[in-house]
């Protein structure tokens, strides 16, 4: 067995919680409502209120807080960078403190706090969605929500199918990349020494076969799909069933109320 076998794809954390049991469409709409709402919130107190509500939801989701924080880590750098940028370049309001040529203005600090909290909460909401929704349900939910747009020739089915295939092949390509890196290392490739340009050049023997391999897989997959009677979304039925029940509607209402609370504060 390969190391890590049996591990869930992506950020999904399997658990038995009320959030996991919700219809993916309800959760997607809830996150959408939160996103819109967060752009209307205009006070630190408001952000903190939304954050507190999200913390409660994390508790309900039974995703361990440490695991959840790990999901947020990649954006921490972006958050820090944008915040610093605001502090450094916004020159409105009083000077709060100065350091050599650097001056922090009150307006800059306020904007920085708002922006950092906003991004952090957006990502937290999205992370809660992906942590509690299996990827396949997520793509089913998206297809379903986008399906009214099919009338305007919006490729809702194709987008969902692409997501499904991507989910299926991410682990495969990851494994292939690992193998190719090992194989080239055995032939003397060195990925750890030299300057930036040398390191990028060292990646060529990995990226070329990985790309060629991905195209070969794509060809074979297309053949397999065609030979199994695939001809787009027309006339197709779905194996998985989504059912939007009372609790989903309730959950959605609560989700809409969270940012409303934040806005009022």
């Amino acid at each position: 067995m390969a190391p890590g076998a049996g591990r869930g794809t992506g950020q999904f954390y399997p658990a038995d919680s009320p959030l996991h049991a919700l219809d993916p469409r309800a959760k997607i709409l809830a996150v959408a409502a939160l996103v819109v709402g967060l752009f209307l919130v205009d006070s630190v107190a408001g952000f903190l209120a939304v954050g507190a509500a999200l913390l409660c939801l994390v508790q309900v989701s039974r995703v361990p807080p440490s695991t959840f924080l790990r999901l947020l880590r990649p954006v921490a750098v972006i958050v820090a960078f944008t915040a610093l940028f605001q502090v450094a370049f916004v020159r409105e309001g009083e000077v709060v403190f100065g350091l050599w040529v650097f001056q922090a203005h009150s307006e800059g600090l306020r904007l920085a706090a708002h922006l950092a909290l906003r991004i952090l909460l957006l990502v937290a909401a999205a992370a809660l969605l992906t942590a509690t929704t299996p990827p396949l349900s997520l793509s089913d939910g998206i297809e379903d929500l986008l399906s009214p747009l099919k009338r305007f020739r919006f490729p809702a089915h194709e987008i969902a199918m692409m997501m499904t295939i991507a989910l299926r092949f991410i682990p495969t390509l990851h494994e292939e990349a690992r193998k190719i890196i090992m194989a080239q290392a055995a032939r003397g490739a060195d990925f750890t020494e030299g300057g930036l340009i040398q390191r990028v050049r060292a990646l060529v023997p990995v990226l070329v076969p990985l790309t060629v391999g991905a195209f070969r897989r794509a060809d074979e997959l297309a053949e397999a799909m065609e030979s199994r009677g695939y001809r787009g979304g027309e006339g197709r039925t779905r194996y998985r069933e989504l059912s939007f029940r009372g609790r989903d509607a309730t959950a959605l209402c609560i989700a809409v109320l969270i940012p409303v609370g934040g806005i009022l504060l």
Binding site: T9, E223, A224, G229, Y239
Partner: peptide, 28 residues
């Protein structure tokens, strides 16, 4: 086909087995 790795479409076994049936429009 020769390489099963590249013929499986869905991220779970049962969804993949259902793929051909979905294409034929078989009821759930």
């Amino acid at each position: 086909f020769q390489n099963p790795e590249n013929g499986l479409v869905a991220p779970f076994v049962e969804d993949d087995v259902a793929f051909g049936l979905e294409n034929l429009g078989v009821p759930r």
